[in-house]
Simulated scan of single mutants.
Amino acid sequence: MNSPVEDRLREALADAGATIDTSTLRPLRSPERRRFRVDLRMVSVATAVVLAGTATFTAFGTGGGDQDRAVAVSPQVVQDREAELVVFLCTAPSKQVQCGDGDVTPGRIKEIETTLRGLPQVKSVVYTSRTSAYESLRKDFARNKAVLKEVKITDLPASFTVRLRKGADLREVTDKLRLVAGIRDFVDPASAPPWPRTAELLKWPIKVFLCSKGTALPACGAVRVNGENGDIKVTKEGKGATPAEKKALEELIRKMPEVAEYEFVSQKAAYEQFQEQYKANETLLGATRVKDMPRAFRLRLKQESSWQDVLAEVREQPGVAQVVYLPCPAEMSALQFDFGVALPESAVCPASS
């Protein structure tokens, strides 16, 4: 079961022409903390290529025809660390059998806490009420009026943060959790994509990725058809951006009134950034080459400028594979991993304000 963020990043991976076998990669660990705050996240040039491989989403069917519950877990089932799971409780309305009529009652919350504390693999349990979660969301998304307008307090689930003992069998724990009435789903925060610091995000909130040779994106001239098994097959590869297209795009960006500053990131520069950011992950470094990196422009906007207008104009230019407003995937991921809320990109970052 793929999240909207994972789907989006897989497209970026395809655009880069990367040949990484994501099934062999372990999640890149984030710093040990209870929650991953929005102001610590962004997507770098390298991240747009590799993040599709940083989380493995495994669906656990609950039977009875109800919706599957998904938990983002590490392929390493027996943990060599004190892992965490964030357990989200049921909210109304819900079609899931284990959620019954929807919202869990105070009595049921207490029973779930007792169950969690009784698991031998569990070291500690911390409860976060719906009210506390909503207060945190209002603070974390203070700059995103679209999210504040979209998400109501009744949309947020209460949750438990469960810290597991070192050596705990994560699969065994999740198998038990899926049988507990009142638990909607659960995630492993360590599988959340790692985001560099906010200062870089605020300076360069927009990235314009150029088409790469052999890309599978239709924006670059690729032709894709649905296969018999539901997979997508590329019948015609796309073309890379020409020098003339790159020059025309740079001229357009230079003249845009919303743009305060811009710079071009070559494949070599992107690869150097990538090597520094992921120097501890030898598997990933060994599987990635300079040619896997997409060329890109990154843009800083003038204060109060509309990023929607910039995206709308730039994405239509020849040679442009994809234009990304970087806070979008970061905030979509934060909503899912921090608050148990899945929203489409159109709700988190609407095309028009």
Rank of each mutant, 00 (worst) to 15 (best):
F36C: 04
R37S: 13
G53W: 11
R315K: 14
S333R: 05
L9M: 09
V348E: 11
P93F: 05
C211R: 03
P4V: 05
A46D: 10
A244R: 12
Q267H: 06
Y127P: 01
A72V: 01
L249H: 09
S94H: 13
E263L: 13
A52E: 09
F209S: 00
V104C: 02
K207F: 12
L201K: 07
D66P: 04
L156N: 13
T58L: 06
A199T: 06
K166G: 05
V125N: 06
D103C: 15
W195E: 14
S136A: 15
F209A: 03
K291Q: 08
D39I: 12
F141C: 12
V5Q: 02
A146T: 07
G118Y: 01
W307N: 01
A260P: 00
T115G: 00
S23Y: 11
A190T: 12
V341Q: 15
T174I: 07
G214M: 13
P344Q: 09
R117F: 01
A312K: 10
D66V: 10
R69C: 00
Q98H: 10
V126Y: 09
R295I: 01
C99Q: 10
V147W: 14
Q277W: 14
K152S: 11
I112N: 08
A18T: 08
A133C: 02
A12G: 14
P75E: 10
S136V: 10
S94W: 12
V73P: 03
G61P: 13
N144S: 15
F297L: 15
V104F: 04
W307K: 09
I253F: 04
A222M: 02
S44C: 00
R34A: 15
K268C: 00
A270R: 13
R315N: 11
E135N: 00
V50I: 15
I183G: 02
G214F: 14
R34Q: 12
S44D: 03
V38I: 11
L148M: 02
I109H: 11
N226I: 10
S132D: 14
L89N: 14
D292A: 01
A334Q: 09
V180S: 02
M42K: 11
E237Q: 13
R138S: 13
Q322K: 07
N2Q: 06
R315H: 10
I253W: 10
V234S: 15
Q79V: 12
W204C: 04
G238Q: 13
C220W: 08
S124L: 02
L299W: 06
E345D: 06
M42W: 11
P4L: 06
E251N: 10
V122K: 03
L311Y: 01
Y262G: 00
F274Y: 11
R10S: 12
F186W: 06
V71H: 09
E172W: 03
R117M: 06
L252I: 04
L164Y: 03
R69S: 03
V77P: 10
V122Y: 04
D231L: 14
V49P: 00
R289I: 02
T154A: 04
S30D: 12
G102C: 11
R184P: 01
G102N: 10
T154N: 05
D21C: 03
L301M: 07
V162R: 05
L343G: 10
S3T: 14
P243T: 13
A181S: 14
D155K: 06
Q336P: 06
K207T: 15
M293I: 03
R143C: 01
G61K: 08
A321M: 00
A55G: 08
L335G: 08
E84G: 00
Q322D: 07
D169K: 01
L170A: 01
E263D: 15
T242E: 12
R41T: 03
W307I: 00
F36R: 15
